[in-house]
Amino acid sequence: MPAVPAVRTVLGDVSPADLGLCDAHDHLFLSSPRLPRQELRDASAATAELAAFRAAGGGSVVQWTPYGLGRRAADLPLLARSTGVHVVAATGLHQAAHYAPELLGELRGRLAGLFVSELTEGLGTSGVRAGFIKVAGGFHAVDAHARWTMTAAAEAHHRTGAPIAVHLELGTGALDVLDLLCGELGVAPHRVILGHLNRSPDLVVHREAADAGAYLAFDGPSRANHATDWCMPDAVRALADAGFGDRLLLGGDTTTAGARSVNGGPGMPYLLRRVKPRLELALGKDLMGRILTENPGRAFSADWP
């Protein structure tokens, strides 16, 4: 019998239809030298944040924290069970600046195998399997590190079927990423999720990426270095009007402790509390419902081996 597409959560594979309202890009745990003293390490705070998201109507969260950045994989099933929210974990590798050079050297020659192992066997010794691969581009470019990680991600994708999610630095480089992943490395465009497009509101690039067949993620409220919230409804509506409503994803991308709702920031509930009603005015409630439920179910599902 052919495999049935499923979303691989930290509690096991589930039907895409079971995700409920999905935050398609966020973080429960994250530690990086680029975010000193703002680490997401507190399991109690993560539980409270996830419970607040659940209380706002949320059903699932996709955590884009990759290898080596404090995923706390063993804690994720406990959070999912205690809050009733599906959690999808990531394998993958972020930009080089997030890691010690020694660690990157140790991973040379075995990165694709690591990704495959974390997708099929588990993250470290936790037994929690990743549900997708997260990699990152450079600013308006695919640098050498990005080419290395994306090549490994493509190999792991071809071996497992896992979707590939891409951090676009300040929303840039989308077409270069697609040229590499889909043009050179043979990944089907609908298996690629492009993140942070809200940070670079270039409607021409958005349209070209959608034409190629990729999923387009608008994830996270504006920060000081990319104050683009006011552009997002127009960008999303332009894509929907062009027939690409089925390619849109939304997320919160909470990356620091101060940004959590339990600490006074927007946090995970902001997606449903503020973004959802605002975009309903631009897109209508029916399409917004599909963007938050059906689209993530397709984007993050795979015919797992």
Rank of each mutant, 00 (worst) to 15 (best):
G84Q: 02
G124D: 11
T91A: 02
G186Q: 10
N198K: 03
S32V: 10
G161R: 11
R298V: 13
D23M: 09
G12Y: 09
R159W: 01
A3H: 10
F244N: 03
N225M: 04
L114N: 05
G127M: 08
L50K: 01
A188N: 00
A73C: 09
G70E: 09
G58T: 08
R34M: 15
A227Y: 00
N225Y: 03
A146V: 02
G127T: 10
V7I: 14
L170Y: 14
E102T: 13
G122F: 14
L203W: 14
L11P: 01
R108F: 06
H167K: 08
M288K: 02
D202Q: 10
D286M: 07
V142H: 03
A238T: 08
E118R: 03
D13F: 01
E102K: 07
R108D: 15
L69Q: 13
K276G: 00
R199W: 00
D42Q: 06
R81K: 11
G57L: 09
R34A: 15
A73V: 10
L197I: 11
V166G: 10
R37T: 12
A6Y: 01
F53E: 09
A302E: 05
V135A: 13
V116K: 06
G92D: 03
P266E: 07
D202N: 15
S15E: 14
E169I: 12
E118I: 02
V177P: 03
P277D: 05
A136M: 09
S126N: 10
G70W: 07
A56S: 15
M1W: 10
A156D: 11
T293G: 06
T256S: 00
R41W: 13
T151G: 15
G105A: 14
L30T: 02
I193T: 14
N225C: 02
H86G: 06
V192D: 11
P163G: 06
V88W: 11
R159D: 06
I291S: 02
P33L: 07
N198C: 01
A130R: 01
L19G: 00
A80W: 03
L272D: 00
L76R: 03
D42C: 12
V7M: 10
T149M: 09
F218H: 14
F53Y: 15
L79T: 01
H25M: 10
A3C: 01
L178W: 11
